Simulated scan of single mutants.
Amino acid sequence: MIDHSGISVTDFDQARTFYEQALVPLGSRFLVQIPPEHTGGVKVGGFGQASPAFWITEGEAQRPPAHFAFSAQTHAQVDAFYQAAMAAGGTDNGPPGLRPHYHATYYAAFVRDPDGNNIEAVCHAPA
């Protein structure tokens, strides 16, 4: 249903580094930075696999903080996302594990990014 989305970040370079590291286990990477002459001088960049699906734009922090859930194919990817995001400076908001109150096979991990957004990796496959 959603083709792409994004958030505003207070420090583009810090956010780029965080997401570059956190999204690697999910098969995503930094794909493009829009030239400043097309953005009025604002830093804008996109992450994804084949095309940008998640964008960051330097500006005011999201208020209230946003929540994004990134798809993982395996529980191991969720675990690796959590470890990578924490190593990149994220803050724990729920370690990897089953969340049966959502769904019997909902395996997820939650991390706050440098601006306090709730970033999740979720796998719906059974263990």
Rank of each mutant, 00 (worst) to 15 (best):
I2G: 13
I2F: 14
G6D: 04
I7L: 11
I7Y: 00
S8E: 10
V9K: 03
V9C: 05
V9A: 10
T10A: 07
D11S: 12
D11Q: 02
D13N: 12
D13G: 02
Q14M: 10
R16V: 10
R16H: 06
Y19R: 02
Y19F: 15
A22G: 03
A22K: 02
F30K: 04
F30I: 09
Q33R: 11
P36K: 13
P36Y: 05
T39C: 08
T39R: 13
G40S: 05
G41T: 11
K43H: 14
K43N: 13
G45R: 06
G45Q: 07
G46E: 05
G46P: 01
G46Y: 02
G48K: 04
G48N: 12
Q49H: 14
A50H: 14
A50S: 15
S51N: 13
A53R: 11
F54Y: 06
I56R: 04
T57C: 14
A61N: 05
P65G: 13
A66V: 14
H67E: 14
H67K: 13
F68R: 04
S71H: 12
A72G: 13
Q73P: 05
Q73D: 15
H75L: 05
H75I: 03
D79R: 07
A80R: 08
F81W: 03
Y82Q: 04
A85H: 09
D92C: 08
N93G: 09
G94Q: 02
G94P: 01
G97W: 01
R99I: 13
R99A: 10
P100A: 11
H101T: 15
H101D: 15
Y102N: 09
H103S: 14
H103D: 14
T105W: 09
Y106S: 11
Y107M: 07
Y107T: 07
A108L: 03
F110S: 00
F110D: 02
R112V: 01
D113G: 08
P114W: 00
N118K: 06
V122E: 06
V122H: 10
H124W: 12
P126I: 11
A127Q: 14
